[in-house]
Structures are given as structure tokens and as C-alpha cells.
Design a protein around this nucleic acid. Structure first.
Lengths: 225, 225
DNA sequence: GCAAAAGTATGATTTATATCATAATTTTAA
DNA sequence: TTAAAATTATGATATAAATCATACTTTTGC
């Protein structure tokens, strides 16, 4: 279950579906960036200038709502793409991306990326498939929000995090989140998350140690869904 | 604001982005279907056999949850595509589509459609863009579910319906939904929808007549968002 | 290494909305 | 056309979760 680390800038959709001839162009145009934990990769309302591919580290994609509240759209890890939202109809990012730990990324100018799409129909096809799947997952989230109680949504979030990020040697899910970040993803308050985690722990479905979470009883946890 | 009717099977993404040479192939393979009000176009768990393009009529795309509850993912009208969700990884529809009024559709075998994508990169590109935008809209819905109260979500739904379906001569939004369908879209109960609509009407923001809804004060309605 | 800041657990109270209940109205189909 | 079925409006009650409050713990940055 341990997540494989991308040990080179390359384990991503861009490189996987790019024809070799064009890959040289991309390599010339690309740029490496690093972002410290807690720092933004880009922010809502920033002018869109390029797309990012995570090499190492983890990032949250989120959106502010009013003054205090935010919603986390998704968590991203090595290999994942950030910052592309269809043709540049809108010229600003509709979301923010913030590093959850020290992160390195490959940056590609938006014009170069769009040219790359034109030249590589298979990449466009893969990207279409990615969005179609992402859409389905997001629709599932809407459904959960509408009909599932918070505890079930927390169980779902933990299950998703385990699937996407794997676990480390001690069995803890390989991503550390604050209660507030969990809350912003699940769509509730950090107090409620705190309570739900205490409950799940009392029921021996999970085990925690600070921000670490380990699943103890996967089957029963999934019964809450 | 009146919605333009597609007076021929053709006002859709498929025809718009299909190269002329291939269009003949599509025309040969296509099939016309009609579905009576209340009848399914396809259902969750059905084997995916093809994709649909609405010619006339309106359709809801929805998903059951447990025994009684459902969530409406979106409403579709002439020109809209139904039933395609990325490469045929899953062989069953994850959602149902049901006619809200008598509807006619163009049906295309899934293999023919995927071949069409291979031959028409611009179609793939357009589809990718469609999904990217749909994703953004759905993420917005998740956010609304998480942070907005029911009344605001009802206001948002009404605004969206007006934008997407236009209004008729009497100013009513050109789609008739039951309170239950509204509820299933907004993520609440039909009793709550009933109350919210009464409230909005008392505040003179909308006007209703049976299932018809007209917006009276767009600005103030949008202030609820 | 330590003080300040950020994050966490848990209790008490409030509140929005679900649920339950009933009567009135509209739609459907025989 | 008419009776049955579906839909709607609205009131009363219950409840999950938000909010408010406080003490405790961990993390951060100088």
C-alpha cells in the first residue's frame, strides 16, 4: 500500500502521453519550483500563467467562501496536475493551491501546455478521461453532502485518503491534516471533526496519534458509507 | 432569453466538432429514439451501450441513494449529451436519465462514438473542455452544500434554471419541476422546498403558478448567494 | 529552548432543517 | 368525468450539527 515516490520529474500525465518528439520541447520549456509547507502554489484570482505537476510533496486545492470558511476541493500528491481548468476562458484561477508539506513542482507555461494538447491528441484524450472521472467523484461528493450524515462523510474521507495516499510503516495514512483541513474537506466544523474522530476511535474503527490516523477496521468503517 | 429550439438533429457538440468526412459515418450509424415523459432514457446499472444527444425535450440525470432518496445531478435540454463518462472502464451507467417531458434523442453506439473521438481531436478537446467546466460547476455545488443554507441554494438553483432554460412569454422559467425534483437537486426535502418557495414568494423575489416559477427580483435573489 | 501561536478535545446551548402529521389541491388514467 | 393517486402547503416536534466557551496540547519561529 506504500505510495511509490516519483524519483524523477516525469511520473505524470503530461510525460506519459506526450510523443517523444514533443517531449524535448516540453523539457526545454519547463521550470522547476519549490514551495515551502504552508505557502501557496497559486491563489484564487491570480492570473493563470501556467500549469503545475507535483514532483514531490502534497498540496491542497481549496476555495475560500466568504471571510472565514473554505472548502478543500481535493488533495494532490506527486504525479498530479494542478491549475488547468479547460481553455483559458477565464484568466484567473478559480481555486487556490497550498503546499501541505515542502513540495517541488514542474511548471509549464499555459501557452506551451495548450500547444502540447494540440500536438498530442492522446494527451487531450487522457485529460478528458481524467476530468470525466474527477467529475464523477465530485458528483458523488455532492450526493454524500446531500444525504449522508457527517460521521459517514468522515468515514468516507478517511477511506479515500488511505486509498489515495497509502499508509506508512506504522500503518498511518501517509498524509497529515489538521482537524480544520479535514473539516474543510468534509464540509463541517473542526469541533465536529474532533468529536467524530473521538467516536470512531472509541469504536475501535481507527487509531490516532496526533495528526496521524490509522484504519483498524476497514470493513466496519465502510459500512458507515 | 427564450431558448432557441434545435429544429434539426444537429445542434450538439458531436455535430459541431465532427469533421465533414466523418459526419457521414455518424449519420449512418445514428438512431432516433423517443421517450415519453417519466420514462427512463437509461438507468443506473444498465450496461453502457451508447451515448445520447437530446433533440427535443428535457431530461433529468439522477442517482438513487439508498431506497428512498435520490440526487439530481443535472437537468439536460436539446443539444446536451447524455451517457458518456470517459473511457469504458466501467461498463454500467453510474446514473439514470429520465425524461421530464416527451423527449426525442439521437442515439450513437458507444464504439462508434469512441471511434469518432479518435478521428476528431477537436471533438475530444471540446469534450475535455466540457468536462472541465462541468467539474468546476459541480465543485461549486459541493461548496454551496457545505457552506450555504437551503434558502441560498434554492435561490441559486432558480437562477441556474433561468439561465439554462430561459423563460417563456409569461416570464416563467421554461422547465416544470415537482417540489420533489427541486429538493433532489438542491439536496433537501420537498417540505423545505415548499416552505422556501413560499418565503421567496412572500418576499416578492419570485412569482409562482403551480409548477411554474418566475423571477421577479433577480438582483435581490442573487444577493442570497 | 522558550514563549507565543496554532491546534485539539470536550461540554453547554442554540438553530436550521428533517421528520411527522394533516388537509387541500392538482394530476393522472380508467 | 370522475375517482384514485400524486403533489403541495403548512403546522408541530425532534434532532444533528453549528456555535459558543474553556482548558489543554502541540507546533512554530525567534
Amino acid at each position: 500500500m506504500k505510495q511509490k515516490q516519483a524519483d524523477q520529474a516525469g511520473e505524470n500525465i503530461l510525460y506519459r502521453y506526450c510523443i517523444p518528439e514533443w517531449r524535448t520541447v516540453v523539457d526545454t520549456g519547463r521550470e522547476l519550483r519549490s514551495v515551502k509547507k504552508g505557502q501557496p502554489v497559486f491563489s484564487e484570482k491570480d492570473i493563470v500563467q501556467g500549469v503545475f505537476f507535483i514532483d514531490t510533496g502534497k498540496v491542497k486545492i481549496h476555495q475560500r467562501w466568504g471571510d472565514e470558511k473554505e472548502l478543500i476541493i481535493r488533495f494532490a500528491k506527486n504525479g498530479d496536475m494542478l491549475g488547468y481548468r479547460g481553455l483559458g476562458k477565464e484568466k484567473v484561477y478559480p481555486v487556490s493551491a497550498t503546499a501541505l508539506e515542502d513540495t517541488t513542482l514542474v511548471y509549464l507555461d499555459i501557452r506551451l501546455f495548450e500547444a502540447t494538447l494540440q500536438v498530442n491528441p492522446r494527451l487531450t484524450y487522457a485529460l478528458m478521461d481524467f476530468y470525466a472521472n474527477e467529475l464523477e467523484a465530485t458528483e458523488r461528493r455532492v450526493r454524500n453532502m446531500a444525504h449522508m450524515e457527517v460521521k459517514g462523510r468522515v468515514a468516507e474521507a478517511i477511506t479515500m485518503l488511505k486509498r489515495d495516499f497509502g499508509v506508512n510503516e506504522q500503518g498511518f495514512i501517509d498524509i497529515k491534516l489538521t482537524r480544520q483541513d479535514m473539516a474543510s474537506y468534509v464540509g463541517t466544523t473542526y469541533e465536529t471533526i474532533s468529536r467524530m474522530i473521538s467516536e470512531l476511535e472509541a469504536e475501535k474503527l481507527i487509531r490516532t496519534s496526533g495528526k496521524n490516523i490509522a484504519v483498524l477496521n476497514e470493513k466496519q468503517l465502510e459500512q458507515l458509507l
